[in-house]
């Protein structure tokens, strides 16, 4: 990226190309976009339309779908306490994960940007857990937090604390999942660190000449400067929370001590449905009970909620790209 490959530069050439399109100029973009457009049609638009249709039917994937009108939606909103429980669990995870992940990641990043020796090593250490496949990370955590002989409760017992049952206690299972998510949030930490390093040093110099302490400098300079990155973190965490599936399923299966493959109907939500997230219940309804129609109605609900955040994200992105074009 040091020297331009071609030194000849004709000013305005791009302008002429855009203003006066050659005949059939749309063929080229279409050719370039063809796979993606086909993909969008086949894997996004078609399934969404099909989803709407199926959500009004009873369908077990064996017999032809039967139109049942709004019954699935009525059942979802008023008839299914587990769907309510699952929605509660998902909202719990979205809120707690989003708040704690941002606070935690910002805190860790604030320390790590000040590290001057071995910064690369620290960055690797905090990123390793984020790399681990979620199944492996969850297995590791259920072992670390296993109530009988797990290292965490062992260490707690040195301090005279009798550790909770973690993944086996309905009250502690979600907090344990939250810890797991924080442990694997190295990606966000690195992003926030990059944001912090982008803050011009002169701002800090000026602030400290004015007598601002480090807390005030962080509050009045760092935070506003990394606000866009934090917004990204919020959206990213919300999406993460809305999709929460793998860790919940694997933790439930391991903690229940079931011999069945993870995701089997008996162990889902263990203990006491405290890890039953909305996507997990959707999966259970669709692919264990084969209530495909009801699962479609649940999917529509999840889609509507996630769309709200998508709109927010797109809005922000458009603002950013406008700013870019202005510059």
């Amino acid at each position: 990226m040091t020297a331009a490959p071609h030194t000849t530069h004709v000013a305005g050439s791009s302008f002429t190309r855009w203003i006066r399109p050659r005949p059939g100029h749309w063929i080229r973009p279409l050719a370039f976009m063809a796979p993606a457009l086909a993909g969008l049609a086949l894997f996004v638009v078609y399934p969404l339309l099909a989803l709407v249709y199926y959500s009004f039917t009873r369908y077990d994937l064996l017999n032809t779908p039967v139109w049942v009108g709004l019954r699935n939606y009525v059942f979802l909103l008023w008839g299914d306490p587990l769907a309510r429980k699952a929605a509660y669990n998902t909202v719990w995870l979205v809120v707690v994960i989003t708040v704690l992940r941002l606070v935690f990641a910002t805190g860790v990043a604030a320390v790590l940007v000040r590290v001057r020796n071995g910064a690369g090593l620290f960055r690797t250490l905090i990123y390793l857990p984020a790399l681990a496949p979620p199944v492996a990370a969850t297995l590791a955590f259920t072992f670390l937090f296993n109530p009988g002989t797990g290292p965490v409760n062992t260490v707690l017992s040195w301090f005279g604390v009798s550790g909770p049952l973690w993944f086996s206690d309905p009250a502690w299972a979600k907090p344990a999942l939250t810890l797991l998510t924080l442990w694997a949030s190295g990606e966000l930490i690195i992003i926030i660190m990059a944001g912090m390093l982008d803050v011009p040093g002169e701002l800090y110099e000026a602030a400290s000449l004015d007598g601002a302490g480090s807390v005030r400098r962080f509050w009045h300079i760092t935070l506003p400067a990394i606000a866009p990155v934090l917004v990204f973190g919020v959206i990213n965490s919300i999406i993460l929370g809305l999709q929460y599936f793998t860790q919940a399923v694997v933790a439930a299966s391991v903690a229940s001590g079931s011999a069945d493959i993870a995701g089997s109907r008996r162990v889902i939500g263990y203990p006491d449905n405290s890890t039953l997230t909305f996507p997990v219940w959707l999966y259970q309804q669709g692919f264990h009970y084969y209530n495909m129609g009801y699962a479609s109605a649940m999917s529509i609900a999840l889609f509507v909620v996630s769309t709200v955040f998508t709109v927010f994200f797109v809005h922000r992105l458009r603002r950013a790209s406008h700013a870019e074009e202005m510059a």
């Binding site: 976009m33 993606a36 457009l37 969008l40 894997f43 996004v44 078609y46 399934p47 969404l48 099909a50 989803l51 199926y54 994937l61 999406i239 809305l242 999709q243 599936f245 996507p279 959707l282 999966y283 669709g286 692919f287 495909m292 699962a295 479609s296 999917s299 999840l302 889609f303 996630s306 769309t307 955040f309 998508t310 994200f313 797109v314 992105l317």
Partner: peptide, 25 residues
């Protein structure tokens, strides 16, 4: 099209699993 791509990116994978599973089945 770009907005549609972004929207597709943000859809939780479980949302489309039912119709896609039916398709592949």
């Amino acid at each position: 099209v770009f907005l549609v791509v972004i929207a597709a990116m943000m859809i939780p994978p479980q949302v489309l699993s039912v119709p896609l599973y039916i398709l592949w089945a």
